[in-house]
Computed example of a mutant assay.
Amino acid sequence: MRLTIGRDQYDIEKIRDFSQWLLDIGEGKLDGINDGETVIDIPYDILINDPHDPIGSLIEFVYPSILENYKNTSYFQERAILAPKNEVVQEINDHLLSKFPGYEVEYLSSDSICQSEFVHDQFDANLYSHDFLNGLKVSSLPNHKLVLKIGVPVMLLRNIDQKNGLCNGTRPQVISLGKRVIEARIISGTNIGNRTFISRMSLTPSEKKIPSNFEEDNFHWLYVLQ
């Protein structure tokens, strides 16, 4: 519905047809009744034909002439790449980050077992090494290592300051990179153009698959996404 605002009737019909096509794929209705397997014809205008570098081809399609436009705020307001898994997100991020000029700044999280886990004397925190905790990949948290450059668009993963537009899903663009603080300019939502400072913070994931609760201290955003 958001995509149809301000569009003419021809564009509205194209958007609705594409939306219905996606729904039919998800519900298994494409090509009539099937047993879970069918051949799907991908529309040519959204098909990636490069078998050697499909991610590079996707980036070039979504972000054409990025070196000439990355300083233009509106350039990123109109573009984004969606990915189904964090592994794909990381691969896209690494590929796109390499295209930005300037030096990389690496941020590492500080992971530890929550103090609440020490209620029972029998609990041995040494069972979980730092390497093990740093290697955990859970939803809603970035990976242990976060690499950024000035000019890179990022996305907040937490509601930090709703009044000033710092919410889950807000897209800022990095202006400067400090040791514990990042300065960024908001490029989405109702506070476009505002500058803000984001510091490191501690969070505890609620994912049940993890054998023990742990805390991660890092910058909580996932860049070039969603």
Rank of each mutant, 00 (worst) to 15 (best):
Arg158Trp: 05
Ser202Tyr: 02
Val152Thr: 12
Thr190Pro: 03
His144Val: 00
Asn168Ala: 12
Pro101Glu: 04
Asp124Ser: 08
Leu166Cys: 09
Leu177Ile: 12
Ile192Asp: 02
Asn126Asp: 04
Thr170Asn: 10
Val88His: 03
Lys99Leu: 15
Leu97His: 04
Glu106Ile: 13
Ser199Thr: 15
Thr204Leu: 10
His144Trp: 00
Gln90Asp: 14
His130Thr: 05
Met201Cys: 10
Glu104Gln: 06
Pro205Lys: 09
Arg195Gly: 13
Leu156Thr: 03
Asp131Leu: 04
Ser109Ile: 00
Gly165Glu: 06
Gln173Ile: 15
Pro172Asp: 02
Arg158His: 13
Ser98Glu: 01
Pro153Ala: 08
Lys137Glu: 05
Gly178Thr: 09
Leu141Gln: 06
Leu166Phe: 02
Ile186Met: 08
Phe100Thr: 06
His144Arg: 04
Asn134Thr: 01
Asp131Tyr: 03
Lys149Ala: 03
Asn86Ile: 06
Glu117Gly: 05
Ile150Arg: 10
Ile192Tyr: 06
Asn168Gln: 12
Cys167Arg: 14
Val105Lys: 14
Gln122Asp: 13
Tyr103Gly: 05
Ile192Ser: 03
Ser202Gly: 11
Val174His: 00
Ser139Phe: 07
Ile198Asp: 03
Pro205Cys: 05
Glu91Asp: 09
Gly189Ser: 08
Ile187Lys: 02
Pro142Asn: 04
Leu141Tyr: 05
Pro142Ala: 01
Phe132Thr: 02
Asn134Gln: 09
Phe100Leu: 14
Pro84Phe: 12
Ser112Lys: 14
Ser199Phe: 01
Phe123Val: 13
Ala83Trp: 01
Ser188Leu: 07
Cys167Pro: 01
Ile92Tyr: 00
Pro153Ile: 02
Asn191Pro: 00
Arg79Lys: 13
Asn143Pro: 00
Asn164Glu: 13
Ser202Lys: 15
Leu203His: 12
Leu136Ile: 14
Leu177Val: 09
Lys208Arg: 12
Val119Asn: 12
Arg158Gly: 11
Val152Tyr: 03
